[in-house]
């Protein structure tokens, strides 16, 4: 095993352990952990299957394997960021709806209390 393989392996396991810890502590939802667990498993796979990238690059007609890595990684990051933006927008939308609902309920409750006092 080369030094870089060892480093990658250690980093993947630290990532995996940290993601698991976050989920166990309830700080990360299982849905979102799937992506990170997938990434760290992929890292492990390519640590041992070093010729895999060369093979992939060749079949996709990319001259240098590292170029393929960067392209794929950047593309994945962009897509995931977009996904997170969508999730965030949805969250904002639903929190707005919740707050409005509470305001309307409050008003209804006060109206009722007011009516009861007047009777």
């Amino acid at each position: 095993m080369t030094r870089i393989q060892l480093i990658t392996l250690i980093v993947s396991f630290i990532l995996l352990a940290y993601v698991s810890r976050l989920v166990l502590k309830g700080k990360l939802r299982v849905e979102y952990s799937i992506f990170w667990i997938g990434i760290s498993l992929l890292l492990v796979v390519f640590t041992f299957w070093t010729s895999g990238f060369e093979l992939l690059a060749k079949t996709m007609e990319v001259y240098e394997a590292p170029n393929l890595i960067f392209t794929v990684a950047i593309f994945t990051i962009f897509i995931y960021l977009l996904h997170l933006s969508i999730v965030n927008s949805k969250l904002q939308q639903s929190s707005k709806k919740l707050v409005q609902e509470i305001a309307l309920l409050n008003q209804k409750l006060k109206e009722k209390e007011h009516d009861e006092k007047n009777i």
Binding site: S20, V23, L24, V30, E31, S33, I34, I37
Partner: peptide, 15 residues
């Protein structure tokens, strides 16, 4: 399948 499998494993090892 993926989500529930992960959730089951995490639920089992969670204190």
């Amino acid at each position: 399948m993926v989500k529930v499998t992960l959730a089951l494993i995490f639920a089992t090892i969670r204190k």
